[in-house]
Protein backbone atom coordinates (compact mmCIF):
# COMPACT_ATOMS: atom_id res chain seq x y z
CA UNK A 1 0.00 0.00 0.00
CA UNK A 2 2.76 2.40 1.04
CA UNK A 3 4.75 1.39 -2.04
CA UNK A 4 1.78 2.08 -4.30
CA UNK A 5 1.35 5.50 -2.67
CA UNK A 6 5.00 6.35 -3.27
CA UNK A 7 4.77 5.27 -6.90
CA UNK A 8 1.67 7.45 -7.37
CA UNK A 9 3.50 10.41 -5.84
CA UNK A 10 6.46 9.84 -8.16
CA UNK A 11 4.13 9.59 -11.14
CA UNK A 12 2.47 12.90 -10.19
CA UNK A 13 5.90 14.45 -9.71
CA UNK A 14 7.03 13.36 -13.17
CA UNK A 15 3.82 14.69 -14.74
CA UNK A 16 4.32 18.07 -13.09
CA UNK A 17 7.61 18.84 -14.87
CA UNK A 18 6.81 21.98 -16.89
CA UNK A 19 7.01 21.65 -20.70
CA UNK A 20 9.80 24.24 -20.92
CA UNK A 21 11.94 22.31 -18.45
CA UNK A 22 11.30 19.08 -20.35
CA UNK A 23 12.44 20.82 -23.53
CA UNK A 24 15.59 22.11 -21.83
CA UNK A 25 16.32 18.67 -20.38
CA UNK A 26 15.97 16.97 -23.77
CA UNK A 27 19.50 17.51 -25.07
CA UNK A 28 19.00 15.80 -28.40
CA UNK A 29 15.83 17.77 -29.16
CA UNK A 30 17.85 20.92 -28.46
CA UNK A 31 20.56 19.63 -30.81
CA UNK A 32 17.91 19.04 -33.49
CA UNK A 33 16.48 22.55 -33.06
CA UNK A 34 19.91 24.16 -32.91
CA UNK A 35 20.85 22.64 -36.26
CA UNK A 36 17.50 22.86 -38.09
CA UNK A 37 16.57 26.48 -37.25
CA UNK A 38 19.75 28.13 -38.68
CA UNK A 39 19.86 25.60 -41.53
CA UNK A 40 16.38 26.61 -42.68
CA UNK A 41 16.45 30.35 -41.87
CA UNK A 42 20.01 31.14 -42.91
CA UNK A 43 21.35 28.45 -45.21
CA UNK A 44 18.38 27.08 -47.17
CA UNK A 45 16.59 30.41 -47.47
CA UNK A 46 19.84 32.10 -48.53
CA UNK A 47 20.77 29.37 -51.03
CA UNK A 48 17.26 29.53 -52.53
CA UNK A 49 17.60 33.28 -53.06
CA UNK A 50 21.04 33.01 -54.62
CA UNK A 51 20.03 30.15 -56.88
CA UNK A 52 17.27 32.33 -58.34
CA UNK A 53 19.71 34.95 -59.63
CA UNK A 54 19.71 34.70 -63.45
CA UNK A 55 23.03 33.61 -64.95
CA UNK A 56 24.70 36.30 -67.08
CA UNK A 57 24.83 35.62 -70.79
Amino acid sequence: MAKAKTETAEAVESVRIPPMQRLLDNHFLLLFLGVVVPTVLYLLWGVMELSQIPIAE
Partner: peptide, 27 residues
Protein backbone atom coordinates in the same frame (compact mmCIF):
# COMPACT_ATOMS: atom_id res chain seq x y z
CA UNK B 1 19.49 31.65 -17.54
CA UNK B 2 18.67 28.39 -19.32
CA UNK B 3 16.03 30.19 -21.43
CA UNK B 4 18.76 32.69 -22.36
CA UNK B 5 20.98 29.82 -23.53
CA UNK B 6 17.99 28.51 -25.52
CA UNK B 7 17.92 31.86 -27.33
CA UNK B 8 21.54 31.20 -28.30
CA UNK B 9 20.76 27.67 -29.52
CA UNK B 10 17.94 28.92 -31.74
CA UNK B 11 19.17 32.27 -33.01
CA UNK B 12 22.82 33.02 -32.34
CA UNK B 13 24.12 31.31 -35.48
CA UNK B 14 21.93 33.58 -37.62
CA UNK B 15 24.27 36.47 -36.78
CA UNK B 16 26.40 35.15 -39.66
CA UNK B 17 24.05 37.11 -41.90
CA UNK B 18 25.62 40.45 -41.08
CA UNK B 19 28.58 39.49 -43.28
CA UNK B 20 26.17 39.36 -46.22
CA UNK B 21 24.47 42.69 -45.64
CA UNK B 22 25.99 44.42 -48.68
CA UNK B 23 25.75 41.44 -51.04
CA UNK B 24 23.47 41.95 -54.02
CA UNK B 25 21.18 39.07 -54.89
CA UNK B 26 19.92 38.42 -51.39
CA UNK B 27 16.60 39.97 -50.41
Amino acid sequence: SRAAFLMYILFLQLASAHHMLVEPGIS
